[in-house]
Amino acid sequence: MKRPRGPLFLARRSYRLRRMMDAARMLPAVGMFLFFLPILWRPADTPQPDTARGWIFLFMAWAVLIALALVLARFLVRAEEEEARLSSGDPLATDQMRD
């Protein structure tokens, strides 16, 4: 079934919010990259024991991820409000939230 199409291009603000959603979708991949990084260097595999360094690295990465999530959550809540506003106003406008 063909759906009615929204506008092809969005205003700057909506465009920003949309990219924030993209970023939110990519955040788990970023987290995975950070968390799986120790596999390459294998703490405790080096002659000098460096488990503590691995420990510090993981918590740093964790904190960075939380900070990123905090910033994104701010944007996404706004995006959701925008979406709710659009969908309550104009039934066709919801579709433009797709992309």
Binding site: L27, P28, G31, L65
Partner: peptide, 8 residues
Amino acid sequence: TLVMVGWW
């Protein structure tokens, strides 16, 4: 943590 930050 990965699931939560990827809540979207």
